[in-house]
Simulated scan of single mutants.
Amino acid sequence: MAQAADILVTGASGHLGRAVLTHLLDTLKIPADRIVATSRKPEELENLRARGVELRKADFDDAASLAAAFAGVKRLLIISTDALDEPGKRLRQHQAAVKAAEAAGVAHIVYTSLPNAKTSLVSFAPDHAGTEAAIASSSIPGHTILGNTWYAENLLHSLPNALATGNWYTAAGDGGTSYITRNDLALAAAVAVASDFTGKRTLNLFGSKAYTVDEVAELARKAIGKPLQVVQVPVEGLIQGMIGAGLPEPVAHVYASFDTATKAGNLAGSPDDFKALTGKEPEPFEQWFSKTGAAALSA
């Protein structure tokens, strides 16, 4: 007799969601018939259906679809949405998901937040803090909040232009970032949602060491063989420079807040929570950079 599906992963068609499902199936060996994967476009996940994973449609802007998707689920991973185009939209989406989970009788929510969301200077931290508050005030018995720090892969968006011009403009000062790979964060989420932990906890997931912009630039120079100068500028100057380069002003403010948060130390921390959750060390950033990052930047 087939096992009733009791573990659900939202955002399954995204990079993180796909990686979580891979870890559930291949690393943790969770039976496929225990897993539900949801997406606005479940037809894009037919490879998972072929492996025995149940697919359901879930649209965070459609509360009815969430209620149907979460039916019968005991442990739910809510991967934060990417709805940053409208102030407050993402928080409303997450609040709707928590409400639907509560109505469906979900026993444990795992949520991908960011470290210390209540005090972080990242511009969208209030979305995460508000979601954490909604989870805490719900009647759902247990939760695991995962404070995911910066993906190492985020550098693949910022470094190409810097390497092309030879200048990396930043307002981060001497602040460091404890980069961690998306794969490691996916493993952590998979372990959390598949575990039998029933209490309430908040875990901040950092890489093993914090790197300043100057230290990352040095790694890039050595790996790529191109000159790269770090240019420290005031945050307002950074914003105006990004706007001048064609970024919409709201987006420029979001990106600049990453530097502000870095300078304040919001994105640096200990890997202890990651190790305690997964039983392993996070992949060293320099190893990732030499193996994966440099290859991508050289392509």
Rank of each mutant, 00 (worst) to 15 (best):
A299M: 07
A129D: 14
N154T: 04
E132N: 14
L25G: 04
D196C: 01
R90A: 15
P42C: 06
Q3D: 14
E132S: 13
L66V: 06
M1T: 14
L114H: 02
A264C: 12
G265K: 09
S270E: 07
P271M: 01
L159Q: 03
S113R: 03
A129H: 13
A192Y: 13
L25P: 02
I243C: 05
G265P: 11
A64G: 01
A69W: 00
I224W: 03
G173A: 06
L77C: 04
D127A: 08
A162P: 03
D62G: 12
T131H: 15
G246E: 04
N204S: 11
R182V: 13
A101T: 04
E215R: 15
S39P: 01
D273I: 03
E215H: 07
L121N: 10
G52W: 10
V36T: 10
V231A: 12
G130Y: 00
T119G: 01
Q93A: 04
G166E: 02
V106N: 07
E43V: 06
A50Q: 06
S39R: 03
T27C: 08
K226T: 13
A96R: 13
F274A: 14
Y151A: 10
L55S: 10
A68R: 01
A2N: 13
L155A: 04
G265Q: 11
Y211S: 11
S123W: 08
V235S: 05
I224M: 08
L91T: 08
I135W: 05
G244H: 05
M1E: 12
D6R: 10
G237P: 03
P227I: 12
E44A: 15
A133M: 05
V20M: 06
N266A: 12
G279A: 11
K89P: 03
E249N: 13
R40H: 11
L247G: 00
G246H: 05
E236I: 02
A189F: 07
L24V: 09
A67C: 02
D259A: 15
R40D: 12
E54R: 11
N154P: 04
L55G: 09
D184L: 06
V110W: 02
I224V: 15
E286S: 06
E286K: 07
P141I: 09
A12D: 01
H157I: 06
L185V: 04
T112W: 09
E132W: 13
A101H: 01
A152T: 13
G105W: 06
G265D: 12
S158W: 15
L159H: 03
F197K: 12
A133F: 04
Q287T: 15
T177A: 11
V235R: 08
A19L: 14
L185F: 05
I7C: 09
V233H: 01
S298C: 08
K263Y: 02
L45V: 07
I78F: 12
V110F: 03
R90L: 12
V53L: 09
T81Y: 10
I79F: 08
T202S: 10
A189V: 01
L156V: 14
R56D: 03
K280I: 05
L163D: 06
V20Q: 06
A186P: 02
Y111K: 05
